[in-house]
Design a protein around this nucleic acid. Sequence first.
DNA 1: TTGTATGCGTTATCAC
DNA 2: GTGATAACGCATACAA
Lengths: 331, 331
Amino acid sequence: MTLTDVAQHAGVSPQTVSRSLRSPELVSDSTRERVRASIASTGYVPNLAARNLASNRSMTVAAIIPSISASVFADAVHGLDHELSSHGYQLFIGSTDYSADREEELVRALLGRRPDGMFIVGTEHTAKANQLLKEARIPVVEAWSLTDSPIHSQVGFSNREAVRSLVQYGHAQGYRHPTFAGSLQPGDARAIERRRGFEASVRAIYPNEAIRVLDSGNHGADMDAGVALLDRVLSEHPETDLIVFSSDIFAAGALLECARRRISVPGDIAVIGFGDFEIAAHTVPRLTTVAAPSHDIGTRAGRVLLESMHSASESTQEIDLGFTIVARESA
Amino acid sequence: MTLTDVAQHAGVSPQTVSRSLRSPELVSDSTRERVRASIASTGYVPNLAARNLASNRSMTVAAIIPSISASVFADAVHGLDHELSSHGYQLFIGSTDYSADREEELVRALLGRRPDGMFIVGTEHTAKANQLLKEARIPVVEAWSLTDSPIHSQVGFSNREAVRSLVQYGHAQGYRHPTFAGSLQPGDARAIERRRGFEASVRAIYPNEAIRVLDSGNHGADMDAGVALLDRVLSEHPETDLIVFSSDIFAAGALLECARRRISVPGDIAVIGFGDFEIAAHTVPRLTTVAAPSHDIGTRAGRVLLESMHSASESTQEIDLGFTIVARESA
DNA sequence: TTGTATGCGTTATCAC
DNA sequence: GTGATAACGCATACAA
């Protein structure tokens, strides 16, 4: 069923059918009604790919996230979708599984769909991906972490500041020997920002303290890696009384292991995570961590995109949404 | 940047560029290399909307789910995406927010993108949505629950068997007077299946027991309805020692109300839900329920779609993936 | 191995 | 208020 079929059925030109759909006010009541009836009886569904090609607008936005099943990103996509769909935009989605190469691949593939805007988690991309994004001449929102050299707009919070707050919180709770532990691979720019935040704040808050940072290396970001990190903290830095993990996952693994070994948390050692994932509220003791405004990031990103897509001006926005320390029992 | 631009740059015809991309083996090494270089230096990104129009294949799949941020559906989409993206398909996503009208709207809109396949959660759609889906002539996988009259293929689990297992579990825990409570409107085949499962299994397991079934009627499927159902169970069937709700939502409402009234769960009365929604792990006491194999549903649905899209035969599949009883503290 | 003609379904532009 | 015509960027079929 095409526009032409409907036109024949209604006894008008294809152009008139197109008009009744796009700008009904330019069409007389009687023909508009005839067209409406023909559309209903033929079961015509407009081909948006053709519309896209002819009008040079796709009414789509592409979203690139590390993982769909990570609830923080799902929340963001939910907010994004809510904002965009109410304005008639549809959402393309791709997940990188935290791989920069996969991200570049996705950027290329999704750009091929000619989206009117792009939402992408993170500010660290391959050189090629960066270039593609810039040359695409569409609004791009980089979300989550904030950077000094965004491609276009950005919506997020400062990982660095968040960790600084965490260290301050730990200091206020009376801990004196914090150690940072996480995966600090080049791929994960957010983890690196967190480490930087840790180093800077320890330097400021604990001027006489050594700066202890442990890298889990190139292993998976799973709870087992958290156990391994705990092990290393205990053996390499036995003076530690507070571990700041770069992710709730690591922290949860460490917490489990502490229970197994009858290490009291936070009595013997305190534990802090990052992300406020679901698991953080279910560990024993429950995990103190920092929450990103996931849903808001999506919503605000959606609004920024809508504005940019409609105004066609090149103006960009940088929005810092802050974060929340979630104080529970583990520290 | 278009195919033609690249062709001019490389000094060949547009056709040759197209061929070097689609079937490189038909092009001589030297020209292929020239084309490759031109693509790289022009930063050409193929327009997939145009390719879609010309080739009548979009290499996209549309997924319609109730909510992106519900982890069960996010897991399914993750599995689906993983399966499809490895074969070059991209994913369109839409969330209905549990509204049938919104679902119909989405079906229409996403069908406009001419996806090569469709993934949709649930088997109950508006008449119009059903018709659109059938007339789209693309493979459709209805996921989650199983129905007797699928549109095309389906991947899910048997609600009937799941409730039967729940009743068996309740019996094993020592409960002797189970009552089923839920929304049993004629439209909702899944709830009816659950009721049937309840009736059949009570008949088999409790031969001397009356079969108690309560219908919340034509109200919303929200926590308040759960409170109302609890009320009716207590007044109409005071002998009840186990309530099997047709949804975690109802069960969670009932649990909250029990806390308010100082009714001990499971001491005074036990409660079982259905679905293993996120809330089930957050109630006090935590809710015993049944979990769908979310991620597997997505993965298998992806495979079914791939087969159907490639074979072009009209063959359909019906896959029962089973379920898992999640035993927590409420029963 | 490469090039030419034609069409995919729609919108934009300009006529009437 | 309505219609004819030419794009949009690519693939298909066929020809060379």
